[in-house]
């Protein structure tokens, strides 16, 4: 299948990418292309120009910077999957990456591309919310930082404005007593999340001192499950407490329904995945 015709531009630096964006306001940014190219082949998208940012210098790589892990936006899912830095400092992302697509998709797809695309069933968004990540966004007027909580604004919509480029993701490194886990119920064919839940839970002296729990796949965009978080904090995390905390985690009114899974079924799946993720996070708390 051929896409419609387009002009191709390759940016070598962030400045060059921003200048190309300014000169081609209708252009789409091309990272790994594993959401955009299929959409273009199906003619769901027909941008007049593509700006390839996959080779922008300095945007690929994972490094520890103080108490944060910094992930360049053009870091591939494969880089995440095999990163020793993440395995030690952010095991959640090491769990999530190998669940995305398949090996060939992971070889091309990028963290920044996936987050900026904001597919409602993508795996990373729930993790970024649970981790309390922040996104660095560049524009010709400088850089700004957006917390994950304000990043996902709608279905395929994010805080990245026209003319801007997501350059890096900053994730707080795991601390003592913290456990992280992601559980998803995948669509049997596409493997996208029908309901996925990421949990980052910290315990201190036998009780939960903080909990960040977020879901993806079931709603219009990834979101925190704040009722669940509030029900956990301060409690001794027995299986019964967790079971009670996830009950009614999200209302079907807030969720998507389709021929595969109704909103009510997704609400149920969110509870199940939340229970599994929280219990596994608690079990892995170091």
């Amino acid at each position: 299948m051929y896409t419609t015709e387009f002009d191709y531009h390759r940016a070598g630096s962030v400045q060059e990418a921003l200048a190309l964006l300014a000169a081609n306001p209708d252009a789409k940014l091309l990272a790994g292309g594993h959401s955009l190219i299929p959409a273009m082949k199906l003619r769901l998208a027909s941008p007049p120009a593509l700006i390839d940012v996959s080779k922008v210098a300095g945007l690929r790589g994972i490094r520890l910077e103080g108490v944060e892990v910094v992930i360049g936006a053009m870091t591939t899912h494969r880089d995440v999957e095999f990163s020793d830095v993440l395995r030690a400092a952010c095991p959640l992302l090491s769990q999530v990456a190998p669940l995305i697509g398949d090996p060939m998709v992971r070889n091309r797809g990028t963290v920044g591309g996936a987050l900026a695309h904001a597919d409602p069933a993508a795996d990373y968004p729930a993790s970024m919310l649970a981790l309390g990540a922040s996104m660095t966004i560049a524009s010709t007027s400088g850089e700004r930082t957006v917390p994950a909580d304000e990043f996902f604004t709608g279905m395929f919509e994010t805080a990245v404005a026209p003319g801007e480029l997501l350059t890096e993701i900053r994730v707080p490194a795991a601390t003592l007593g913290e456990g992280q886990a992601y559980e998803k119920f995948a669509h049997p064919a596409s493997r996208y999340a029908i309901a996925g839940v990421a949990a980052v839970v910290r315990t201190q002296g036998g009780s939960v001192s903080s909990a960040r729990v977020a879901m993806t796949g079931a709603g219009y965009h990834a979101m925190r499950l704040t009722k669940v978080e509030e029900a956990l904090v301060g409690q001794t995390p027995t299986p019964e407490v967790v079971e009670a905390a996830v009950r009614g985690a999200v209302s079907p009114d807030e969720l998507l329904g389709d021929h595969f899974a109704s909103a009510e079924y997704r609400a149920h799946l969110v509870e199940v995945q939340a229970r599994k993720a929280i219990l596994r996070a608690l079990g892995s708390a170091g």
């Binding site: 292309g33 594993h34 190219i37 299929p38 199906l42 494969r78 090996p103 060939m104 091309r108």
Partner: peptide, 22 residues
């Protein structure tokens, strides 16, 4: 449509789906 993998080749040593790469 980027699913079946019949088009897999290596680009710089990594397997990719060549139907999903210009």
């Amino acid at each position: 449509t980027s699913q079946c993998g019949a088009c897999t080749v290596h680009v710089d040593g990594e397997a990719v789906k060549s139907c999903t790469l210009f």
